[in-house]
């Protein structure tokens, strides 16, 4: 519905959502927040399949952290104990659940942000008076990770085609292969990022200078609505939590 919304509303919405995700304390509020994030995804016209895939890819790492949380946080009632020592507590389970919700929300926000084009992002930052150097670094950083991911995927594919059976490989050998591939992939991704910055400059991208916009960044009704909606949600959230 609002997939072509102004980048500024998207940035604002993700700012609200991520800060709420970091501050959330009550289980009910966390659930509501998850629902709100889902609503934001739909409102911005993002197919939830994409973020879900990202989550699935992050699942092993999240599982490890969740297990650690469960084992290390000991508060509340003991749920499971062995040899008289409490192993799993309600506090631990709660901490793990909160962590999963937080990571989920932050991943979804990353998805909303990555939908904003490189130049749109810079323009939005500029119009919000963010210093250019910081905006450019942030935009290049956001661009660099996908570049690196692309390089890694191709390198690993070529490794597999040459007999490295990653799926059946032991964890040690697999980690060694990843570390071998990471260096050249990082180098290539960096040199591509460098090439992109040259190309940008040679095409006159110089934020100090006057610039026109052949398509205007227009704040429409739906965009203006994102701001009060975000503020109301945030206020309600604070009231519910504290």
């Amino acid at each position: 519905m609002w997939s072509d919304m102004d980048p500024r509303s998207k940035i604002f919405a993700t700012l609200c959502l991520t800060s709420m995700a970091l501050l959330v304390r009550m289980p009910l509020a966390a659930l509501l927040l998850a629902a709100l994030t889902a609503a934001a995804l739909i409102a911005f016209g993002i197919d939830p399949k994409g973020p879900l895939k990202t989550l699935i890819r992050l699942a092993p790492a999240m599982l490890v952290v969740a297990v650690l949380q469960v084992l290390l946080v000991r508060s509340g009632r003991t749920v499971l104990s062995a040899f008289g020592i409490g192993i799993v507590t309600t506090g631990g389970l709660g901490a793990a659940a909160f962590m999963v919700v937080r990571v989920g929300i932050i991943a979804a926000c990353g998805y909303i942000l990555s939908g904003i084009g490189f130049a749109d992002f810079l323009l939005a930052m500029k119009s919000m008076k963010v210093p250019y150097e910081i905006a450019f670094m942030a935009a290049m950083g956001a661009k660099f990770l996908p570049l690196l991911a692309e390089e890694m995927t191709d390198s690993l594919t070529s490794a597999e085609l040459r007999g490295a059976d990653i799926k059946r490989m032991g964890i040690i050998r697999r980690l060694r292969l990843y570390s071998e591939v990471l260096m050249p992939a990082t180098f290539t991704a960096l040199s591509r990022a460098e090439g992109i910055s040259w190309a940008l400059e040679l095409r006159g991208f110089n934020p100090g200078a006057g610039r026109t916009y052949w398509r205007k960044l227009e704040m429409r009704m739906s965009d203006w609505m994102a701001f009060p909606l975000g503020i109301i949600a945030f206020a309600a959230f604070l009231l519910a939590n504290y």
Binding site: R192, A199, A209, T212
Partner: peptide, 27 residues
């Protein structure tokens, strides 16, 4: 400058925006 790696200058969401980018920058 048309670089050997065309991907270096692919940053906008559509082809038209990509071509317009340099003109916009030049005001």
């Amino acid at each position: 400058y048309v670089m050997q790696e065309p991907e270096f200058s692919m940053i906008m969401p559509t082809v038209e925006d990509e071509i317009a980018f340099g003109l916009e920058n030049r005001g």
